[in-house]
Design a protein around this nucleic acid. Structure first.
Lengths: 137, 137
DNA sequence: TGCCGCGATGTTATGCTATAACGTATTGAA
DNA sequence: TTCAATACGTTATAGCATAACATCGCGGCA
């Protein structure tokens, strides 16, 4: 059967390599981290990575974490997520948890509606420590 | 009377200059933008700006916008804001609106509590177009 | 007074993140 | 075939951030 690291078949070679690198990582990777992992596959320039990342993010297969300048694979295998996604980033182990909350989405929509603000994109990132790292401390 | 660009008296010279630059700007400034504005005051190195920004952000007098790698002065003159703050950033005119929503804060707290995640800092940034820029388009 | 510690400052050098500008290759539709 | 659109490869450069080290100024305190 398919496992969680399967990838859509219509990606280009570079996109597939980049998404693969993200899927095999426990924590977010910067574009340069990804580049270093893919030098053995012939990739040499940052732009090759950034271009692939642009497409992946555009399709929702990867996410950019603004507060880290880094990227993660989407946690939802089939990428059904459409709306606002929140990320909880552990400063201890670096792992990222991804979740959605319709109430928050509704509140933001309400605020935007009242202000006449047209929302195009929202980033929500929580920094802190995950349960395991709190326990370990 | 005091006006909205007053500044706490216990800031150092560099901190005061940096906060002043932010207060006089309509839109967010990068550290290098600020540096350029303050060369006339004798500031020369990025680190002088970053050090001042660190203190200002720590005290809540300025905010960092992660999705822009830029900074704004806190919109609340007396800096009473303690909790989560959300920012709406207009891609048209660059202006930033700052607001708080206790319901969102409560939802995030609930999620964190359920997961055992210890929140240290949250960033929430909405990108889009403000009412004026939507109308102008 | 003189010593000390601490925080702010100044300066140089460097590292990390991201894109501009150009040319080539591949693909797919008319 | 021809054209347009998209991906790819490469070099150079722009933009954001911090390391490391020296100095200065001010308050506490013996």
């Amino acid at each position: 059967m398919a496992h969680s690291h399967d990838v859509p078949g219509d990606l280009t070679r570079n996109q597939g390599l980049v998404l693969g690198a993200l899927n095999h990582s426990e924590s977010p990777l910067s574009a340069y981290d990804i580049l270093d992992k893919l030098r053995g596959d012939g990739l040499r320039a940052p732009l090759q990575i950034y271009r692939a990342l642009d497409k992946l993010v555009e399709r929702g297969l990867a996410h950019r974490l603004e507060s880290l300048n880094a990227f993660v694979a989407c946690a939802d295998e089939h990428c059904h997520r459409k709306g606002l996604i929140a990320f909880a980033i552990c400063e201890g182990c670096g792992k990222v948890d991804e979740f959605a909350d319709s109430v928050i989405e509704e509140r933001l929509g309400r605020w935007a509606g009242a202000k006449g603000f047209k929302v195009e994109r929202t980033t929500m990132e929580i920094r802190g420590k995950c349960e395991a790292c709190v326990a370990a401390a």
